[in-house]
Design a protein around this nucleic acid. Sequence first.
DNA 1: GTTATTTGACCCGC
DNA 2: GCGGGTCAAATAAC
Length: 368
Amino acid sequence: MAHHHHHHAASSSEWEHKCGGLAAELTAGREVAKQLQLIPSSSEQAATREVLVQKILASYENALSMLSTPRMMPAQHHHDDGDIGTVVMMKSSPPGTRSGSPGSEDSDHDLFKDTTSSRKRKSIPRWTHQVRVGPGMGLEGPLDDGFSWRKYGQKDILGAKYPRGYYRCTLRNVQGCLATKQVQRSDDDSTVFEITYRGRHTCTQSQSQSPSTSSSPAPNNTVPPPPSEPAMTLAADDRQHEQLLLNFRNGLNVVVTDDGSEFDCSPPTTATAASTYAGSLFFPPPQDATVMMTSFSAPTSSTYSSVYHHSFSGAASSSSNENVNISYGREQSTTAAAAPPVDFPFGNMDHLFDDPTTFTFDNSGFFS
DNA sequence: GTTATTTGACCCGC
DNA sequence: GCGGGTCAAATAAC
């Protein structure tokens, strides 16, 4: 539990210096990957290769977008040689983009409501791949990007020939992974698909891999794989609980509102009882901090048969250290229609999911 | 039984 | 009101 964090005491200039170097390094890697992408190869391996290159590029984009959360990071990405197969990164589409794709949809759709006047808003990262599907292959939603997606909608877009498909991560309801993507077939070149990703994967999903390729360990998420099946003895149901809490824990983030710097809390977590899990987190004494969930969603739905209600609560421990204890519970009810209020181990919090993402925490210590 | 897709309804911001 | 995004009931697929 003594989780003193490594480097939050470093001087900011030094930090920025390192970040700059990191960014340059990542950008360089990305450019090389793009070059690799343009080198022809035998049709036999072309598809697999393309998938791999896409993954490499996605990793770079993710890393870069993680770096750019504070408003530093000069916009030197995308040299964008408008070529097929390149990755176009957009921070937020400027409202005049007439380039190729219609509908510059920018409903940033914030998960974080802004109750208190001026709080930093965190927009969901979004990036776009343009993918050309090979002449023979895939007539529909083009190459598998390694994640499993579930289609949840389709819309005709004004001025677009083809409808736009909406997909979300299959594990949304299980692990609260909020990643989504949109697939839009290009108007003029019907072999090109424009795939817009929104949000990073927080699930522990391994990118399934085509045969004869050793599964690369790291998917592009920040969450490490689950610790070697800790719960062989637990029921599958309880494993879901634990997964959720793990996600909950990893999604916790403390933002010191002074300078906007963030601390990775990595609180230890213990599973105590079947429906009671608690995690605690520790962070250095801030003046005014916001504890927020960055990657946890509190799904209320399963499919038809059962509906889960999730709840968590927390309170700062006694005055001395800023130790926050968070509890999480789950209750199952029968159908969506019935959905009787349930008794949580921690009390009723049925309105909770209006905004499950943000708590405010002042030093004297309450969630709200 | 379960999970995925289809598709009109619904919601929300402009 | 309109357009884009999501929900969810019906339906399909497994």
